[in-house]
Amino acid sequence: MATEQVRAGQRTPGAREQALTGLFRSHCVELVRLAYVLLGDRGRAEEAVQEVYLSLFRAWPPRNEGSALAYLRAGVINQCRSDQRRAVRARRGDPLLRASLTWGQPTSDAAAEAVAHDEAGRLAEQVRQLPRRQREVITCRYYLQLSEKETAALLEIGVGSVKRHAHRGLATLQARLEGSR
């Protein structure tokens, strides 16, 4: 019945915008934090989340109301992957892409240094250095607090893979953090 209301609600002017505004208010901060953990840059994280909300707006209505948040989370993870691929290409020498990624970046590292001294900043940095799949699993399991089954569905991998990547990622993080003390 809720799905019927969403579909019927799309026909009324402003219903789509109202539903998306509610989703935005409820989950935007969480999604920006997720993207920040994966990207390490607040501006890029905010842009990734904006792109995903725009994509959901275009694809509205979702199959059911409960799938909208899952769509947003998966979209943020995929958008971060794309952003990281662009960054890798830029580091390899594409001058136009390198210029587009560095345009508007602050010249002072004062904020970055302040965050680096903070324990949460150190942990986030260590998470960003994990291999992609471990980073995604750790973020989903322990930041988003998803179950192994939910994480597997979101990342489209098996539950056993989630367990393996979580175990390896946690072991790596523990070793790195103990070594940096």
Rank of each mutant, 00 (worst) to 15 (best):
L34I: 03
T102Y: 04
P61H: 02
E150F: 00
Q145M: 10
L20W: 09
R89A: 13
P13N: 04
G104L: 07
Q10P: 06
L123N: 02
L38Y: 04
A111R: 15
W103N: 03
A74Q: 15
F24M: 05
G169E: 08
Q134F: 02
P106Y: 02
L56P: 07
E65N: 09
E30C: 00
Q5G: 00
A114Y: 01
A59S: 14
E17I: 00
V49I: 01
R128M: 07
T21R: 13
A116Y: 00
V37F: 12
A59I: 01
Y53S: 02
A110M: 05
Q174C: 09
A35M: 07
H167F: 14
P62L: 02
T102D: 14
A68H: 02
L130E: 05
L144H: 07
I157L: 08
R141L: 11
K149V: 14
S82C: 10
S147N: 07
R44G: 04
A171F: 00
H165M: 12
K149N: 10
K149C: 03
L20H: 06
E148F: 10
R133L: 13
S26R: 15
R11L: 14
Q84V: 06
V6Q: 05
Y53L: 04
L173S: 10
A35S: 09
D83M: 14
R141N: 07
T139V: 06
Q129H: 12
R89G: 06
A152H: 05
A99L: 13
